[in-house]
Design a protein around this nucleic acid. Structure first.
Length: 104
DNA sequence: AACCTGACTTCGG
DNA sequence: TCCGAAGCCAGGT
């Protein structure tokens, strides 16, 4: 059985609209524990495929892709661009514009 | 139970 | 704005 926190994380990531992004910390905060950003990472590692989560819509607090080149960076960049999100070749995104929050 | 690790975050310099 | 250090969480060894 998964913890409530994990369940919430999965639910929240699924709620991120197409064409929008959210930070690991943001997801953690909405799930009830703003300090558990790293736990969000763990959830992605263990359930992103099984739960079919839009993992590419999760970036770090600076609005950049955390994955390394050759290790998912390109795929995430492509998926984001495919949704109409503008990102620099370095993987930077304007959170003011694409960042998602429940009430925004 | 201690120790290590990771797709993190914040703070200072 | 970029980099390093320290803080934080929980699952795996």
């Amino acid at each position: 059985m998964r913890s409530d926190f994990t369940e919430s994380v999965i639910e929240i990531i699924r709620a991120v609209p197409r064409g929008r992004v959210c930070s690991y910390g943001g997801v953690a905060a909405q799930a009830g524990n703003p300090r558990a950003a790293r736990q969000v990472v763990r959830v992605l590692h263990s359930c992103s495929e099984k739960e079919r989560l839009p993992w590419w819509r999760v970036v770090n607090s600076r609005g950049t892709i955390s994955l390394k080149r050759g290790y998912g960076f390109e795929e995430q960049l492509d998926r984001l661009k495919a949704e109409g999100i503008e990102c620099s070749s370095a993987g930077r995104i304007d959170l003011e514009r694409y960042g998602w929050e429940r009430n925004g």
